[in-house]
Design a protein around this nucleic acid. Structure first.
Lengths: 227, 227
DNA sequence: TAATAAATTTAGATTTGTCTAAAAAATATT
DNA sequence: AATATTTTTTAGACAAATCTAAATTTATTA
C-alpha cells in the first residue's frame, strides 16, 4: 500500500487554467471571488460557478456557495507545478531560443500544459536549474519551493539608493513594449534622482546614461531589490 | 488584397490528429478508409465519419460517402507542419535533453500541437536545422520539403555489404526496447554475414563485435542505407 | 445473381465547458 | 430596517467530440 500505487490524477487544460488563476488571485486577497475569476479568465460568472463545483469534488479547492474559494494544499501543489513549467519554458524561450522577454508569455501559456514530468525535470537540468524567470519571478523547484526575493516597488525606493530591477508587475505587451523602448529590463541597475509630488512621476538614472523621468504608472509596475 | 491579410485558420488538437493520421496512412494506400482511421485513432467508425464531414467543409480533405478520403494540398500542408514539429521536438528531446530515443514519442505527440510559428522556426535554428529525427525519419523544412533517404529494408541488404541503420519501421516501445538491448540504433553500421532461409533470420555483424542473429521480424523493422 | 458479410453512415444520446436569462443571496444605501 | 444594487447561483440550452445501435451501402461468395 505504498504511495507508488496512487495513480496521479490528470486535469484538463481548462481546469489547470482555473487553478492557476485562483493561485495568482489568492496571493493578494485571501479568498477569491467568482466575478474576479470570470474577469481574469474572460468567461462568465455562471461558468465559473460550474467549474468551481467540479474542482471541489476533485478536492483541489474548498468552496462554499457565495463564500468565495481557496485552493487546498493539493490545489496549491498543482498550481505550483504549472507555474514551474510556465517559468521554466519562459527561461528556455529567452535564454536558449533568443525570444524577446516580452514575447514569451503566450507561448509559455501553451507549453505549461505539457504533462510529462520527466520533461520538466530534464528541462530544468538542461537550463541549469534557474531560480528566476526572465521577468524576475521565482521558479518553483521540483518540490514547489521558490526563493522569495527581497523586492520593493520602485515607487517606494528611497532617492539616491541604487537598486536592480528584478520583476515587473504585469506581463502586458504594452508595458513590455514601453520597457523595451526605454531600455529597462530585469537586471537593469538604476537610482531615483528626484520624486515629483505633482503627478508622482520620478526622475531616474540608469548606469551612466543621462537621467530621464518615468510616470507613476510605470514606476508602480517595476519592482527592484537594493544592491 | 495581399496574402498577408489571410488570417491563418487554426485547428483543434483532435482535428490535427486526424489530419496527421490520414497523412501517414495515405503514404501506403492511396485513399484511406474510415475503419483504418478509427483503428489508428482508437475511436469508432461513426466518430470518424462525423469528423471527416467537418474536415471536408474546412477543405482539408476530399471525401465522398463510402469512397474513402484523401488530403487536399491544404491538408497535406497542415500535416507536414505537424510532422515537422513532431520530429523537431523529438530531436530536441534526444539531443538536448538526453532522452532515450525510445521514450520521446508520447511527449512529442503533445508538443507537436503547440501553435507558435515563431517557436518552430527558432527551435529549428537552435537545433542547427537537422534533416532527420532520432528515428531516422526526415524532418520537413519550413516549406514542407524533406529529403528522401535512399533506404532499403535490412532484409533486402545483400550479404557482406556494409550499411548504416537510418530508420525504424515502427515506434512501438517493444521494438525500441529490443533495439536498445541489442545495442542497435540510428547510425549503427553493420553488415549481413548470412541469411537463413528456414526462418528468414539473419546473422549480422556490428562493427568489431561478434556476429549474432536477429529474427525476420526485427530485420523487417529496420531500414538501412548503404555506405 | 442472390444471399451474406463487412464497411460505412445515420440517428439519437452523452460529456465537457460554455452561454443567457432569471432567481436567490449578500452587500450597500437611504 | 427597508429598499436598491451587486454578486452569485440555478435552470436550461448549445457546440464539439464522442458513443451505441440501427440502417444503408458496398464487397464477397456461394
Amino acid at each position: 500500500m505504498s504511495k507508488k500505487y496512487f495513480k496521479p490524477m490528470s486535469f484538463s487544460i481548462t481546469e489547470e487554467n482555473y487553478i492557476k488563476a485562483i493561485f495568482h488571485l489568492q496571493q493578494e486577497e485571501g479568498t477569491v471571488s467568482t466575478n474576479d475569476l470570470a474577469s481574469v479568465l474572460s468567461t462568465r460568472a455562471a461558468s465559473v460557478t460550474d467549474m468551481l463545483k467540479k474542482l471541489k469534488t476533485k478536492k483541489l479547492l474548498s468552496y462554499e456557495k457565495y463564500k468565495g474559494v481557496r485552493l487546498t494544499s493539493e490545489g496549491k501543489k498543482l498550481a505550483l507545478a504549472i507555474v514551474r513549467k510556465h517559468r521554466l519554458w519562459e527561461y528556455f524561450l529567452v535564454n536558449k531560443l533568443q525570444f524577446g522577454w516580452d514575447e514569451v508569455h503566450e507561448v509559455a501559456e501553451e507549453l505549461e500544459h505539457i504533462t510529462s514530468r520527466k520533461l520538466v525535470e530534464k528541462l530544468d537540468a538542461f537550463l541549469g536549474f534557474p531560480r528566476f524567470d526572465p521577468h524576475g519571478d521565482p521558479i518553483p523547484d521540483s518540490h514547489g519551493k521558490m526563493l522569495v526575493q527581497q523586492q520593493i516597488n520602485l515607487i517606494d525606493l528611497p532617492v539616491n539608493k541604487t537598486a536592480e530591477v528584478c520583476a515587473v508587475g504585469s506581463q502586458s505587451t504594452e508595458l513590455l513594449e514601453l520597457l523595451r523602448h526605454k531600455n529597462i529590463g530585469i537586471g537593469t541597475k538604476l537610482e531615483i534622482k528626484k520624486k515629483f509630488s505633482f503627478d508622482h512621476s520620478i526622475e531616474i538614472r540608469v548606469r551612466n546614461q543621462p537621467a530621464f523621468t518615468i510616470s507613476q504608472q510605470l514606476a508602480q509596475a517595476l519592482f527592484v531589490k537594493t544592491v
